Amino acid sequence: MYQRILVPVDHSDTSAAALQEAKRLAGEQRAVLRLIHVIDLAQFAWSANEFLDVPQLQASLRVGGQALLDSRAEELRALGLTVDVALLEIWGGQIARTIVDEGEKWHAELLVMGTHGYGGLTHLLLGSVAEGVLRYAKTPVLLVRAPEHVA
């Protein structure tokens, strides 16, 4: 039985599917959910910053990330679940390591996150945050794929 479930969230379908599974588990087990969103403040600082307002873009990432967390948490709280949120900022670091470190710091008993399940060249080029979490995590990790969309 898991009492503390950490869920990284973003705007993807896979993240939404993972949150649905975490919601189900938390409801069944009366667990506390901690939603996190990781933003990389360095992503604009290293490219063509003479054409971009980097501080404004970074502020936008913060506002958007917090809005996402607040929206997801409000939905879960309306269902009677206990939820807290954390917006995590990194500067060009590893997102996977940041997720695992937060799980350890918060004493998570389970990490639930989405995965695209990419293979081949796409995986080689993009890497996988989920794979990194699996590599570093000492606690159980539940990976959830989004349902396939039929065209």
Rank of each mutant, 00 (worst) to 15 (best):
L79Y: 07
A17Q: 10
L69C: 05
A42C: 01
R4N: 11
P147F: 04
T98C: 11
A73R: 08
L121K: 01
S12R: 10
S71A: 14
I5Q: 04
L81C: 12
A78V: 02
H37I: 03
V7E: 05
R97V: 09
L69P: 04
G80A: 13
L126F: 11
P55T: 05
V7D: 07
T98N: 00
E28F: 13
K23W: 08
L6M: 06
L143M: 08
V100Q: 03
W91Y: 14
L110F: 09
E75R: 12
S12E: 11
R97C: 00
Y136D: 13
G119Y: 07
I5K: 02
A137R: 08
A18G: 09
F44W: 14
E104L: 12
R30V: 05
A48W: 14
A96R: 02
Q94C: 08
A86R: 15
P55D: 05
A146R: 09
L121C: 00
S15R: 08
L69V: 07
V133S: 05
I90M: 13
D13M: 09
S15C: 09
P140N: 06
R4W: 03
R30E: 15
P140Q: 05
Q20W: 05
H11P: 02
K105D: 11
F51G: 11
T115N: 02
V112M: 11
H107A: 13
L35H: 09
D84Y: 11
R62A: 04
L6Y: 02
A18W: 09
Y118K: 09
D10A: 08
V63C: 00
V150W: 12
L57S: 03
L134H: 06
S60E: 14
I90T: 15
L68M: 10
W46P: 00
W46H: 14
K138D: 14
P147D: 11
V54K: 04
H37C: 10
R145L: 00
A78G: 15
L126M: 14
V100S: 07
V85W: 06
A45C: 04
A48E: 14
E21Y: 13
D13Y: 08
L52E: 04
S47P: 00
R72H: 07
E131C: 00
G132L: 02
E102M: 10
G92F: 10
Q29P: 01
S71V: 04
K105F: 07
R72A: 13
Y118F: 08
A59G: 07
S60K: 13
R30M: 11
A86L: 14
I36L: 14
A130F: 03
L35T: 09
D53G: 03
E148L: 12
P55R: 06
E74Y: 00
G120Y: 04
L52H: 11
W46M: 13
T14R: 07
A151K: 13
E75C: 02
A151C: 07
V7M: 04
E50Y: 15
L121Y: 06
L33T: 11
P147H: 10
D40A: 02
A42M: 08
P140W: 03
S60V: 00
Q58K: 06
D70Y: 01
I95K: 12
L57F: 05
R135M: 05
V32P: 01
I95Y: 03
T115W: 01
L25H: 09
D70M: 02
A130P: 02
P8Q: 06
R77F: 02
S128I: 04
S60F: 03
